[in-house]
């Protein structure tokens, strides 16, 4: 068994969408008797922005947690870069080049923005604890390099003015941006965003959309995102997976999904028998 094969193509705005990067095959996830995800398959292509949408409790976050290795599904396989991925601890998944942000911000409140972002470089640090503690040899060079990368992302996300501010003092919208920065600084191949615009006002949403597009464009990062706001999803993504009650009810371009009767029913609500 292998992954789906696609021919690369160029989008109207000049981005290249490549072959399959990740494929979920017949994933089923159960918590005791509760079926959170039921037999779902879909793929994520290199360079694309892939959205997972659905009403509350549809199993979107569970799906993201399966991708990031936080949950191991009872059935089905996760394929990444052409090979089947064995059950794996999340930190090992992160080392494979997958970074994520959280729906409920998970930053270190007492640390500065810069320090928070630097923690995202953890997987790129090769020197040991002792070397870093006495600041000797490679450790110093490594930190310089990591700081350069962090500064590049700070510049990219335009958060220079809060570089030294403790995260706890920041407003919500900026915290979200700092979280994105921490994920980006890991230089991921696949970026997972769990409701990046939840709780934001229109202006913050527009900014965040702009940054997501810029990340995809500038760094060629593949992005999988979960989002509630339909307008945002339809504008941002190349392809959309729609989930409802743990099942996949739609998959395709935003236009295809928009005209899918099942999706319309799920969002507008019909009586389930």
């Amino acid at each position: 068994m292998t992954m789906m094969q696609y021919e690369p193509y160029e989008t109207p705005d000049g981005r290249t969408i490549g072959n399959t990067l990740m494929e979920m095959k017949n994933i089923t996830l159960r918590f005791g008797g509760v079926v959170a995800i039921q037999d779902i398959s879909f793929d994520i292509r290199e360079g694309e922005i892939r959205a997972i949408i659905g009403p509350n409790g549809a199993g979107k976050s569970s799906m993201l947690n399966v991708i990031s290795g936080f949950y191991n599904p009872q059935e089905g396989d996760v394929w990444f870069r052409g090979t089947k991925r064995p059950p794996m601890r999340p930190y090992l998944v992160a080392r494979q080049g997958i970074a994520r942000t959280f729906q409920n911000i998970a930053l270190f409140d007492g640390m500065s923005v810069l320090d928070n972002i630097m923690t995202g470089r953890l997987n790129h640090m090769k020197t040991g604890f002792l070397g870093q503690a006495i600041w000797w040899g490679k450790a110093e060079k490594e930190e310089t390099l990591n700081r350069e990368k962090a500064e590049e992302i700070i510049d990219f996300l335009e958060i220079q003015s809060i570089r030294k501010t403790p995260v706890g003092r920041l407003p919500y919208g900026l915290k979200k941006r700092v979280e994105l920065a921490r994920a980006l600084v890991a230089e991921p191949e696949l970026l997972l965003l769990d409701e990046p615009m939840a709780g934001m006002n229109v202006e913050e949403k527009e900014d965040m959309s702009r940054f997501i597009l810029d990340v995809n464009d500038e760094y060629g990062t593949t992005i999988a995102l979960i989002e509630h706001d339909m307008g945002v999803v339809m504008d941002l993504s190349d392809r959309v997976v729609v989930m409802d009650y743990g099942k996949k009810i739609g998959d395709g371009t935003p236009d295809e999904v928009r005209n899918n009767q099942e999706v319309i029913d799920a969002y507008l609500g019909v009586a389930h028998d």
């Binding site: 700081r147 350069e148 500064e151 590049e152 700070i154 220079q160 570089r163």
Partner: peptide, 11 residues
Amino acid sequence: KPAYREKEFGI
């Protein structure tokens, strides 16, 4: 002698 300075990338 320095004629211009600009802070970029934190430096």
